[in-house]
Design a protein around this nucleic acid. Structure first.
Length: 613
RNA sequence: GCCCUCGUAGCUCAGAUGGAUAGAGCAACGGAUUUCUAAUCCGUCGGUCGCAGGUUCGAGUCCUGCCGAGGGUGCCA
């Protein structure tokens, strides 16, 4: 079995330093100190100090002694005086810690001088494959597709930043039934002029028509069950009335493609580049790149070999005409070859595992995919283990469904959801509207090019942040106004912070490089400055917490908390007009470090910043 | 039928491994700008954490039952 990856045992954050000290003290009172260090964390409430250790109560049970007595013993044994004030014991046995300002100032100076902002690279780098986005090409992308894309991208960037080797792979659906639909549509409905003028647009239309025709025929079969007939385009309706059982015909076209039929293969080769170029437009606007884009078609000719291997090893056997892998703990088998001889996505997923293990030797593979495929992945991983890949950590990073305004899942098939292009356009448009309102009151107006850039960065940032700031497990209701919100807990708030700090530099005519190279002497003159300092030192802890369970929303939450603290500080404390030159220097450094942490944190979420807003 | 999620403020959502008085944002209302960009800040209002039991020093969090919503479930992906 693989060794479970504990991100929080890699670099020395403040928290890990405290835990390390406590571990030694814990060893003097019990023989399993590691079971308890996890109970040491940031204080829940500032009144209790900066960090707290909630270890005495559970220990009391184990040692059959009063918790306060154990807390006393731990406080006596723990060696913390260089970083903390004397610990205080409260309530049933909480141990409250308050960091010494001189130590905080010293750590802060280190972070400020460090291009990595005080986050040390992991000392046990591992190789991760992150499989995300993976849309079906040739099918219009809609709002449901951005979740996998932005979450996967953020996780890949975060893993890379903390020092792991990361390989991103976009496992495109480029070999499936949707091509059967397009081929079928092309053969029956194509308009050569329209196709020449704009291939991808025409192919999309063909897809939609065929899809609608199939849905319409199915609805008609189930007849009176639903009174409301599905929405249908006249072209699709004509097709549905002219050709019987389109679904079967589509599957036949798909089967011919897979069997190597020269006409269909030729059409597939012709369509694919246009389809790929089309989704690249989206990735370009989202500023997302992949190391590899090995789609299903890449694995197609390996599938017979996979199935043969499974059969030879006795892992797969025939049942009800299909070739199946039966797995312990599952009622239904994983089917790897249909009775008509065709392969399934299970088969190509196994082929993908084999390829990645052979060529990339990952320690961990993350599949950033909708939670509805949970059971599929459980089976896939179980099958991979019995197949021999039992030392790699295969993980389904599942996320919730994007629901329509009515609270029901979008129908991914019918295509009448909000398209992704439309969403991106709207995002930039809304950002531009706000920008123009705000800019009217500004002394130094921005030119058109600046405005366009800002609108793009702010609009796309809002969109990504709306997804990333939410716990990935929960379903969420899509709404333009929520996704494109530009105030409150949004990317805009964080981008605004960055822009404000740059504004200070401009106002003061400051050379930022000179500021950073100057001797750093922080002065935590007020409570709010101290609070900001502590927040800045927690960047690494936030990244640890993100990677503990692959939750980017923890980073978003951290950044928002930090920004709130910053804005309080900023409203309370004058930077350029500070009472003394030393305090002014300290505050400039606080602003600078905050801006750098925010910029870096946003970058890990795939979100950019601008100097002015 | 079986399996898996989810139910927290008017709305949208945070609350990992059980910890001190359950938090944000939005909306609503009231304030702050001769001074670093008001996309900001401060304040007020807002809760039977679906319901009922249980476990224990302590439960939004764990267990059982019920109600409600969604998803998956042998030849789509």
């Amino acid at each position: 079995m693989f060794v479970h990856f504990l991100a929080n045992e890699t670099y020395m954050t403040v928290l890990l330093e405290i835990r390390r000290r406590f571990r030694q003290a814990l060893a003097t009172v019990c023989d399993a100190p590691d079971e308890f260090t996890g109970l040491i964390g940031p204080a829940q409430d500032p009144r209790f100090g900066d960090y707290q250790a909630n270890v005495a109560m559970p220990l009391a049970k184990r040692l059959a002694q009063p918790p306060r007595k154990i807390a006393d013993a731990l406080v006596a044994a723990v060696q913390l005086d260089d970083l903390c004030h004397p610990p205080e014991i409260a309530g049933p046995g909480f141990i409250n810690l308050r960091l010494r300002d001189d130590w905080v100032v010293q750590r802060l100076g280190q972070a400020a001088r460090d291009p990595r902002l005080g986050v040390d690279p992991v000392n046990n780098p591992r190789t991760f494959v992150v499989d995300f986005s993976s849309p079906n090409v040739a099918k219009p992308m809609h709002v449901g597709h951005i979740r996998s894309t932005v979450i996967g991208d953020a996780l890949a960037k975060t893993l890379r930043f903390v020092g792991h080797r990361v390989i991103t792979d976009n496992h495109l659906g480029d070999w499936g039934t949707q091509f059967g639909m397009i081929i079928f549509g092309y053969k029956h409905l194509r308009n050569d002029d329209a196709y020449r003028r704009n291939p991808i647009e025409h192919l999309s239309s063909l897809y939609r028509w065929v899809r609608q025709a199939i849905d319409w025929q199915q609805a008609k079969q189930q007849a009176a069950a639903r009174e409301e007939p599905p929405k249908i385009d006249p072209v699709a309706k004509a097709l549905a009335e002219r050709v019987e059982n389109i679904e079967e015909a589509v599957l036949a076209e798909t089967a011919k493609l897979h069997a190597g039929d020269s006409e269909n293969l030729q059409l597939w080769r012709e369509f694919l580049p246009a389809c790929r170029a089309d989704i690249q437009c989206i990735y370009q606007r989202l500023d997302i790149q992949f190391d590899h884009e090995l789609g299903e078609s890449f694995y197609h000719n390996r599938l017979p070999h996979i199935v043969e291997d499974l059969r030879r090893r006795g892992l797969a056997r025939e049942s009800e005409g299909a070739l199946c892998v039966f797995l312990d703990g599952f009622e239904t088998p994983m089917i790897v070859q249909k009775k008509d001889g065709a392969f399934l996505y299970s088969t190509s997923d196994l082929a993908t595992i084999e390829y990645r293990m052979t060529h990339w030797q990952p320690d961990v593979v993350l599949y950033v995919v909708d939670h509805r495929q949970h059971e599929h992945f459980e089976k896939l991983f179980a099958a991979a283990r019995v197949w021999g890949y039992d030392r790699v950590d295969l993980r389904h990073i599942s996320f919730g469904t994007v629901l329509g305004e009515d609270g029901r899942p979008f129908k991914t098939r019918s295509g009448d959801t909000v398209g992704l292009e439309e969403l991106l356009d709207e995002a930039e448009q809304r950002a531009m509207t706000v920008l123009q309102q705000v800019a009217e009151e500004r002394e130094s107006p921005l030119n058109a090019a600046q405005q366009a850039l800002i609108a793009r960065v702010v609009g796309i940032g809002a969109l990504k942040y709306a997804d990333l700031s939410q716990n990935r497990q929960t379903d969420y209701k899509f709404s333009f106004s929520k996704m494109l919100e530009l105030k409150g807990n949004t990317a805009t708030y964080l981008q605004y912070l960055y822009a404000r700090v740059q504004g200070i530099y401009r106002k003061a005519g400051l050379n930022v490089e000179a500021l950073r190279n100057a001797a750093v002497e922080f002065d935590l003159a007020t409570d709010i400055e101290r609070q900001l300092a502590l927040g800045l030192l927690r960047f690494g802890e936030a990244l640890d917490d993100v990677l503990l369970d692959y939750r980017p929303n923890i980073l978003a939450q951290y950044l928002f908390d930090l920004a709130q603290t910053f804005f309080k500080f900023y409203n309370q404390c004058s930077v350029l007009q500070a009472e003394t030159a030393a305090l002014r220097q300290s505050r400039l450094q606080l602003c600078d470090l905050t801006a750098r942490v925010v910029r870096q944190g946003l970058a890990l979420l795939g979100i950019d910043v601008v100097d002015q807003m």
